[in-house]
C-alpha cells in the first residue's frame, strides 16, 4: 500500500511538471520552446537567458503562467473538497458541483457582481461566493439527513433544484446586467481561467495551502467517519464539530474556486474516485493525491480548452463537464444495484 502511494505520488508529480511545461509552450501564438521556458527561469532568478521579444514575454509570463498556476490551485482545491464531501456524505456521487454548492456559490458571486459590485472591494465576490456556497451546503446537508444516514436520492435532487434555481437567478440577473457584467456572468456560468491575476492567484494559493493543512489534520477522523457516525463517535471523534468544520472548509474552498474561475464541474467527482481506485479510501493519502491529480486534470483541461478551437478558446468548465459527465453516468450505473 505504502509503495503504491509513493508510486502514484511520483507519477502525478512528474505529470504535473510535464503538463506545466506544455501549458507554457503551447498556445495560439507559436513561440520558441526553449525561450518560453527560459523566460520563467529568468523571471525567477533574475537571469537573462531568454531571447523572447517583449510581447512574447507578456504572453508567457502574464497570460500562460498565471493561468496554469490558477489551474493548479483551483484544481487542487476542487479535488480535495470533492474528496471531503464524498467522505462526509459517505457517498462517491457527492461532488460540490452535483449537489449544488458550486451553483450556490456562483449565485452569491453574481449577486455581488450585479447588485453591489464593490462593497468590500475585491473581497466582495469571494465573500459572497463563500456565503452562497455555505448556505447551499447546509441546506443540502440538512435535507439529505435521515435516520438511516444520508439519502443519495435527496442529495442529487436537491442538487438539481439548486442548480435550476441558480440558473434562473443568473438569467434573471443577466437581464438587468450591463454589458461588462454580462461577460463576467458568462464566465461564471461556464467556468474559465482567463481571469487569473495576482490577487486571485494569491487568494487561491493561500486557500489551497490552508485547506491541505486543515484537511490533513482531520484525515484520521474522516477515516473514522466512513465507519458511520455513531462508530466515529465511539472512537472519540467529535462528529458534530468535524462535520461543521468540513462543511465550512469546503464552502470556503468552493467559494474561492468559484470566485476565481466560475463553476468548474466534475473535478471534485472524478479525481477522488480515480485516486481511490489506485490507493483506497484512506484520507491520509486520498487528500494529497487528489490535490495533485486535480491540479493535473484542470491544467490538461485548460490546455485542451485553449488548443482545440485555436485561435479562439472554449471555457474550461465545458471541457471538464464533457470529460466528467460520462464518468458520472458510469458511476451511476455501477451504483444502481445498491439503490433499490
Amino acid at each position: 500500500m505504502q509503495r503504491s502511494v509513493s508510486l502514484c505520488a511520483l507519477a502525478l508529480a512528474s505529470l504535473l511538471i510535464v503538463c506545466a511545461l506544455l501549458s507554457l509552450v503551447l498556445g495560439a501564438m507559436n513561440l520558441p520552446v526553449y525561450d518560453s521556458l527560459l523566460i520563467v527561469v529568468d523571471k525567477l532568478f533574475g537571469a537573462n537567458l531568454s531571447q523572447l521579444e517583449d510581447y512574447q514575454q507578456i504572453v508567457v509570463l502574464e497570460l500562460r503562467l498565471p493561468r496554469l498556476l490558477l489551474a493548479v490551485f483551483v484544481g487542487a482545491i476542487l479535488a480535495q473538497c470533492g474528496a471531503v464531501v464524498q467522505g462526509l456524505f459517505r457517498n462517491p456521487l457527492a461532488d460540490p458541483g452535483i449537489i449544488g454548492v458550486s451553483s450556490g456559490a456562483a449565485v452569491g458571486a453574481i449577486v455581488a457582481i450585479v447588485v453591489f459590485p464593490a462593497v468590500w472591494g475585491s473581497w466582495t465576490i469571494p465573500t459572497m461566493a463563500f456565503v452562497g456556497g455555505l448556505l447551499t451546503t447546509l441546506l443540502v446537508y440538512g435535507l439529505a439527513q435521515s435516520k438511516s444516514g444520508t439519502s443519495v436520492l435527496i442529495l442529487l435532487l436537491a442538487g438539481v433544484a439548486i442548480s435550476a434555481f441558480a440558473g434562473a437567478a443568473i438569467g434573471f440577473l443577466s437581464y438587468f446586467a450591463d454589458d461588462a457584467s454580462l461577460r463576467e456572468l458568462n464566465v461564471w456560468q461556464m467556468g474559465s481561467l482567463t481571469g487569473a491575476n495576482d490577487a486571485n492567484l494569491w487568494l487561491a494559493f493561500t486557500t489551497m495551502v490552508l485547506l491541505m493543512i486543515a484537511f490533513q489534520r482531520r484525515a484520521q477522523a474522516l477515516n473514522a467517519l466512513l465507519l458511520g457516525e455513531p462508530e466515529a463517535r465511539h472512537l472519540g471523534v467529535d462528529v458534530e464539530q468535524l462535520k461543521l468544520q468540513m462543511i465550512i472548509l469546503t464552502a470556503v474552498g468552493v467559494g474561492v474556486a468559484v470566485s476565481c474561475s466560475g463553476i468548474i464541474g466534475f473535478v471534485g467527482l472524478v479525481v477522488p474516485h480515480l485516486v481511490r481506485l489506485a490507493t483506497g479510501p484512506n484520507h491520509h493519502f486520498l487528500l494529497p493525491l487528489s490535490a495533485l491529480l486535480g491540479a493535473v486534470l484542470l491544467m490538461c483541461s485548460d490546455l485542451l480548452a485553449r488548443l482545440v478551437v485555436q485561435p479562439a478558446e472554449l471555457p474550461v468548465g465545458l471541457v471538464t463537464v464533457l470529460l466528467g459527465a460520462p464518468f458520472f453516468l458510469i458511476l451511476l450505473i455501477q451504483q444502481r444495484k445498491n439503490w433499490s
Binding site: N91, L226, G280
Partner: peptide, 11 residues
C-alpha cells in the same frame, strides 16, 4: 457494532 456497511473499500 452489529454490522457495519462501508461505502468505500478499506482493506
Amino acid at each position: 457494532p452489529q454490522s457495519s456497511q462501508l461505502t468505500f473499500p478499506f482493506s
